[in-house]
Amino acid sequence: MKLACMATGFYSKDVIMTIRKSHTPVPETESTGIRPNHDGTFQLMKSVEISKDEEADCFVSHRTFKEPIIIKWDGKRQNFPPEVVAGVIGAGIGGVLLVVILCLVVYILKTRKRVSGE
């Protein structure tokens, strides 16, 4: 399974995020890189493949913190928030509707050409 860690809402880009297995940093981590948020703050997400019985945590350090934040994975699979799921489903339905509408427009245009004798 894939463990993902996300830090958001921090200002000044100098955040350090590490995913650790058994308190040892994992170097082969996928990362989005530091990205801007709409409010001028930043976000970073990293992920790594782990087995369900591995001990893992997210280690986040920033110069504004007195000490690093360490969030331990509790071994349970977490689901996406409902608004994320709704957004993905909505985008999928929207994409299908767009394709159907485009096919319908092409069909109507071709039918008109045949009827008018062109």
Rank of each mutant, 00 (worst) to 15 (best):
Leu97Arg: 04
Asn79Thr: 13
Thr24Asp: 07
Phe65Asn: 06
Asp53Glu: 15
Val99Lys: 01
Ser51Ala: 14
Ser22Cys: 05
Ile89Cys: 07
Val100Tyr: 00
Met17Thr: 01
Ala91Met: 13
Ser12Trp: 10
Ile34Met: 02
Glu54Leu: 04
Ser51His: 13
Gln78Pro: 00
Glu30Pro: 04
Asn37Tyr: 02
Lys13Leu: 08
Lys66Cys: 03
Asp14Cys: 03
Val105Ser: 03
Ser12Cys: 08
Lys13Cys: 02
Lys46His: 02
Leu97Glu: 10
Pro68Val: 03
Cys58Gly: 09
Val96Tyr: 02
Val106Phe: 02
Ile93Leu: 12
His38Phe: 14
Leu109Tyr: 10
Val15Asp: 00
Asn37Glu: 12
Lys21Ala: 12
Arg63Gly: 15
Lys46Asn: 07
Arg77Glu: 15
Asp53Tyr: 12
Leu97Thr: 11
Gly87Ala: 09
Gly90His: 09
Ser51Thr: 15
Ala86Thr: 10
Leu104Gln: 06
Glu55Leu: 11
Gly92Thr: 09
Val100Ser: 05
Val85Trp: 07
Pro82Val: 04
Glu30Gly: 09
Gly90Ala: 12
Glu55Ser: 14
Lys52Phe: 13
Ile108Asn: 03
Thr29Arg: 10
Phe65Arg: 08
Trp73Ser: 01
Met45Ser: 11
Cys103Val: 09
Ile50Cys: 05
Val88Cys: 11
Asp74Leu: 01
Ile16Met: 07
Pro68Gln: 02
Glu55Ala: 10
Val105Asn: 03
Thr18His: 09
Asp74Ala: 00
Gly92Ile: 06
Asp53Met: 11
Phe59Ile: 06
Ala56Thr: 08
Ile70Asn: 05
Leu104Asn: 09
Asp74Cys: 01
Val84Gln: 11
Ile70Gly: 00
Ala56Pro: 10
Leu98His: 06
Leu102Phe: 08
Glu28Ile: 07
Ile108Asp: 05
Thr64Gln: 12
Asp74Val: 01
Leu97Pro: 05
Cys58Ala: 13
Glu55Lys: 11
Lys21Glu: 13
Trp73Gly: 03
Cys58Asn: 02
Phe80Asn: 10
Thr18Cys: 07
His23Asp: 15
Ile101Ser: 10
Arg77Ala: 14
Asp74Pro: 01
Phe59Glu: 03
Glu54Arg: 05
Val88Asn: 07
Val48Phe: 04
Leu109Ala: 15
Glu49Phe: 10
Val15His: 00
Gln78Gly: 06
Val99Met: 02
Ala91Val: 07
Lys76Thr: 03
Pro36Asp: 10
Ser61Met: 11
Gly40Met: 05
Arg63Gln: 14
Glu49Met: 13
Lys13Asp: 03
Gly87His: 06
Glu54Ser: 12
Lys13Tyr: 01
Lys21Asn: 11
Leu98Ser: 14
Gln43Val: 08
Gln43Gly: 13
Val48Ser: 02
Arg35Asn: 09
Pro27Glu: 13
Leu109Ser: 13
Glu49Gln: 12
Thr18Gly: 04
Trp73Gln: 02
Ala56Met: 10
Val85Glu: 14
